[in-house]
């Protein structure tokens, strides 16, 4: 046995358990969602797709899914537009206290989420945003802004700033320059940021727990409640759907990245 194969087998011995540790807990919900038993359990007994039917027909689950979708889409739009503009300020701007602004913008991604949740709960409580879709959109948007800023700023930094000057010298005002030149060039960064923003909102539980009410729940909150109160296998069906959606998101991001890399080469 030469040293190369030995190294490879050592790597495998470490990698397989690591991959198992990372992925297995997520995949457990997939067989659980096909159980025939009315109680959430592992390993599952029998086979049935009834919980998917339940997910689609049950009013609470349906509402939660719709709420989550609507909140995620609005939060994505909010975070993407705010984050893109902020990224321009940070990547191109020169002003005193820029590093402070940068730290502030990125803070929602660093501060412990429970603190954000508690703060948001009391702040929004004062202005009547708790328990409203607008409150959820704002809170999720704020959490997603740093992710958009990071991805878009990276895109802006690879772009030649003289292209903006060239557009101006050719007669394009700031708006047309942005939509005809800048945006097409930073589109991959904006799309990646939007995707991350969507996933952030779609998965968000902690802040949502504080901002939701029994009549306004997001999907993760509905699942949390369901596991705590009923142990109903519908939650496994919902989880499986979430896993599928998130995986699809990752695959899309990967493909965008591949295309970007190919265009550069």
């Amino acid at each position: 046995m030469n040293s190369d194969t030995r190294r490879r087998s050592t790597q495998l011995c470490l990698a397989i358990p690591a991959a198992f540790l990372l992925v297995a807990p997520t995949l457990v919900v997939v067989p659980m969602s096909f159980t025939a038993s009315p109680l959430l359990s592992f390993p599952p007994t029998g086979f049935s797709t009834q919980w998917y039917g339940r997910l689609a027909s049950d009013e609470a689950w349906r509402l939660a899914t719709l709420t989550s979708l609507s909140v995620a889409i609005q939060a994505t739009l909010l975070a993407t537009s705010v984050g893109t503009l902020t990224a321009f300020g940070i990547a191109r701007g020169r002003f005193p206290g820029k590093s402070l602004v940068q730290a502030l913008v990125l803070s929602p991604a660093i501060v412990p989420i429970v603190l954000v949740a508690i703060g948001t709960f009391f702040a929004y409580g004062r202005v009547g945003l708790v328990g409203t879709p607008a409150g959820l959109v704002l809170a999720h948007g704020a959490l997603a802004v740093p992710l958009v800023v990071v991805t878009v700023a990276a895109s802006i930094e690879t772009m030649d700033p003289r292209l903006d000057l060239a557009a101006a010298s050719l007669g394009a005002g700031p708006f047309r320059t942005f939509f005809l030149v800048t945006l097409p060039l930073i589109r991959p960064g904006v799309l990646a940021g939007a995707l991350l923003a969507f996933v952030t909102s779609w998965d968000e539980l902690v802040v949502s727990l504080f901002l939701t009410t029994p009549v306004l729940r997001t999907l993760p909150v509905e699942m949390w409640t369901s596991v705590r109160e009923q142990l109903d296998p519908t939650v496994a069906a919902a989880s499986t759907m979430l896993v599928a959606l998130s995986t699809a998101g990752l695959v899309i991001a990967y493909v965008i990245g591949l295309r970007q890399a190919r265009r550069k080469s």
Binding site: L165, A166, A167, A168, S169, L170, G171, A172
Partner: peptide
Amino acid sequence: AHKRGTGM
């Protein structure tokens, strides 16, 4: 700049 009409 965009209203000066100079080529660059």
